[in-house]
Amino acid sequence: MNWAHKLLLIDRRIIFVVVFVGALIPIIWPIGLAVQISPPVKAVFDRVEAMKPGDAIMLSFDYGPSDGPELDPMANSILRHCAKKGIKVIGVSLFPLGGVEMAIARFMQLDTDLKARNGIDYVNLGYKDGAPAPMKAMGDRIESVFPCDANGVPYSEIPVLEGIRSYDDLELAISLATSIIGEWWINLVNAQFGIDVALGTTAVSAPKYYAFMEAKQAIGVLGGMKGGSEYEELVARAYPDLKGLSRSATMGMDVQSVVHLVIIFFILFGNVMFIVTKRMTRGAN
């Protein structure tokens, strides 16, 4: 076994330590790199920005804690954006592994950040099982599947829901989704009920949603932490008084830069070592 081959077989824990340190340093000492805005994120921001006070959107929390670092920043900035514009937000969740709790936490954050009022500025209707069924039912009457909010307050007694019966009364539906639920918002809700849909997705799913967006089935896509950081940046530019609020995705992109460079180095170095090993083996033979 030559030296290059030995280097290829190093203990994986050494790689783990390099990644760990690479991620830790920018968290302790942030770099503050600038975020570039991409058209799919700008399209979603512009759509919300063009709404009038009193308009309503549905925000579906279709993700769990494992996707929080990617999708929580999107939820925070969309909620802040809507609060500043006076847009009503109807929160729902169709993801079983923690969606409703993610919604509860984000709305609590909104209360802390901007003193938004539950039931007046927004409502969290909670979670329902069997996603396509509630999605279909809401096309006729939201109340038929969400008879009360997450705290048990009846639908008819919630002021923010006055005049809102179905998708027809909403301007936009935004799904912050992991797994297939985001696709269902497109291929069921947008296709059958015609409401505009925007997606905030985990990075892993983002490439697929570009196909839907290019076919005009979604107005825009926020892909992963990068998408979240772009929305944070757009909101901060439009509403400078919100600049002081936490922007976890923007901060996270510093770490992404460092760890991406580490991984790119590993890919290239691994390939160079692979070629060197092959040449040395061939030479020895």
Binding site: L8, R12, I15, F16, V18, V19, F20, A23, G64, P65, S66, G68, P69, L97, G98, E101, V259, V262, I263, F266, I267, F269, G270, N271, F274
Partner: peptide
Amino acid sequence: IYAPMQATMFSLLAFYVASASYRAFRV
């Protein structure tokens, strides 16, 4: 309890992606 555990379990994949990039991503 639930949220940190679920998030940490999935975050372990970052380390394995890096390891796989070095060991298996061959041109």
